[in-house]
Design a binder for these strands. Structure first.
Length: 504
RNA sequence: GCCAAGGUGGCAGAGUUCGGUCAGACGCAGCGGCCUGCAGAGCCGCCCAACGCCGGUUCAAAUCCGGCCCUUGGCUCCA
């Protein structure tokens, strides 16, 4: 059983292979001009799950994710805050924010997060190589890629060069030989028009023109597309294994990356192109420019990392996914079900009855089935919903076993299948935590982890009073206590072994 | 206009690579039962129900081919 993925360039499902144990993964990262939102997080999480699954399969993953910190949208925000004196100040603010968001999402760290501002010499070298190879030309201090010179231009997005319309700003189009040629190096600073266009608020600061760097063609700024080529080849070599990004980047960004990189090296740029579907909200894609977005910090605060990641695991990476109240509610239910069952199983394994030897063959075979189904689903183009379904099927078996063990017990307490339960717990941890990136140990949103001791004691105190009332048949009094606890966010559930509670 | 991705039950969402094992999973919502003092959680069952439309290939099509309609994305910054 091997991993297969959907490759955009070949436009089909293909078997994934790597030379040796190492896999290079490049994820098209963010332009740090705004808060990261749940659309960005969707790509991050799916890339993270791929990273984790490759780890699980025994590969050594070399993961690189760029940070675009040179961009006219960033320049446009200079002066919006008092400490934003220049482009790097704005970039620094949002870079810090995305790193924090990534930590909150429980993402495996990339090996390196290269920044454009730290790779200007590499970018200039790459542009020079492209010019020398005859695929680019200088015009008024700018350098443009000649799309007619690159035979396979359009292969990724299935477009004919003749059909393509002009790219770039109107004032640079006259410098191009073909309207679809795109800038590798732009002369001068950011144009006033570009800053005006991206400016969100009126403020008094004079229009900034952004950072510029010296180059063989004079002062200027790198083109957007060439940055990714330069940074990925710098850190991962001429050919990388997996290039991942949002579907909205297929054209022109990724098309141009292929053209630039392969023009310069003559080598295949990326062996597999994976594109994540977009996240929609109210029928449109979630987008900073449309304004229909939910920021990652806000969503983490409100839902927690587990509900979010369960939500993302509800649809395949390459599909579109809708964010609605219903789909969020579904994710909450799915996560609750997983975590409640996990907690029950852990409690049983840790209980004084854990040493009992009763073997439940249906539990044990359910665990192995879940593991097989999970792996099959992941290998099938990272079908995370099917993989989650395998874990949910396991919750059925675990709960059934726990129910049976509790009811069929004779004198000495429930008879758990210790080995079976332990294997189930390990399965939740290996597949749910290590692969899907869930955190069974993490408290829900709004509840700190380290400070529950006093709260626990107080809840226990109230529950003791309630149990006394129940034993005395004073159910009205008992229900009052339960309602009072619920009012402060403690949900009480009676079970065969007495009441349990959880914080909401 | 050109390119791409889609259109599957009340919702959401797999399946299309390799036509039959699929008018199927998982889940949400809903209904019934067990359990419970009640509730919740859990378990069991139900949900008579859907493959955008038209045509074609085939013994057989959600899956392949052709045409059409609709949605979303890209062609300008975009994960």
């Amino acid at each position: 059983m091997t991993l297969s993925v959907t490759d955009t360039l070949r436009d089909e499902r293909v078997a994934f292979t790597a030379d040796g144990d190492e896999v290079s993964l490049y994820v098209c990262g963010l332009t740090v001009s705004d808060d990261p939102h749940l659309g960005h997080a969707r790509l991050w999480v799916h890339a993270d799950v791929l990273h984790r699954w490759l780890d699980h399969l025994g590969y050594d993953v070399r993961h690189v994710e760029n940070v675009t910190d040179v961009n006219e949208k960033i320049t446009a925000r200079v002066g919006e805050r008092e400490d934003w004196h220049a482009e790097p100040d704005v970039a620094e603010t949002f870079t810090a924010e995305i790193f924090e968001a990534m930590r909150g999402l429980n993402l495996r760290r990339a090996e390196v997060y290269p920044r454009v501002s730290g790779h200007i010499p590499e970018i200039i070298d790459l542009v020079e190589s492209i010019v020398e190879a005859g695929y680019a030309y200088e015009s008024n201090g700018s350098v443009y890629f000649d799309v007619t010179a690159f035979e396979n231009y359009g292969a990724l997005s299935n477009q004919e060069v003749a059909e393509l319309e002009a790219q770039g700003e109107p004032d640079e189009r006259s410098e191009k030989r073909h309207p679809a040629d795109f800038a590798l190096w732009k002369a001068g600073g950011v144009s006033e028009a570009a800053v005006e266009e991206h400016r969100k608020h009126d403020h008094d600061v004079a229009l900034p023109d952004g950072e510029t760097w010296d180059s063989p063609w004079g002062e200027g700024r790198p083109g957007w597309h060439v940055e990714c080529s330069a940074m990925s080849m710098t850190h991962l070599g001429d050919t990388l294994d997996v290039h991942m990004g949002g579907r909205d980047l297929v054209f022109p960004h990724h098309e141009n990356e292929i053209a630039q990189s392969e023009a310069a090296t003559g080598e295949t740029f990326a062996r597999y192109w994976l594109h994540a579907g977009l996240l929609s909200m109210e029928g449109e894609k979630m987008s900073s420019s449309i304004g229909n977005f939910w920021t990652v910090p806000d969503a983490l605060e409100e839902l927690g990392v587990n509900v979010l990641r369960t939500f993302y695991a509800g649809a395949a990476y390459r599909s579109e996914q809708a964010l609605t109240d219903e789909t969020i509610a579904e994710a909450e239910e799915r996560w609750d079900r997983l975590s409640r069952t996990y907690d029950r199983a852990v409690d049983a394994v840790d209980s004084v009855d854990a040493h009992t030897k009763a073997a439940d063959e249906s539990l044990r075979s359910a665990v192995e089935t879940a593991r097989d189904d999970f792996a099959a689903a992941m290998n099938d183009d990272l079908n995370v919903r099917e993989a989650t379904a395998a874990l949910l099927a396991l919750t059925d078996a675990v709960n059934r076993h726990l129910d049976d063990a509790a009811t069929e017990t004779s004198a000495g307490g429930p008879e758990y299948d210790y080995r079976g339960l332990r294997r189930a717990v390990e399965t939740f941890e290996e597949l749910g935590e290590d692969v899907l990136g869930l955190r069974f140990d993490a408290a829900g949103p709004g509840v700190g982890d380290g400070e529950v001791t006093l709260a626990d004691d107080l809840v226990d105190l109230v529950l003791d009073l309630r149990e006394a009332a129940r034993e005395a048949g004073e159910y009205e009094r008992a229900d009052e206590l339960r309602d009072a606890l619920e009012d402060v966010g403690v949900v009480v559930e009676d079970g065969p072994e007495g009441p349990t509670y959880r914080f909401e």
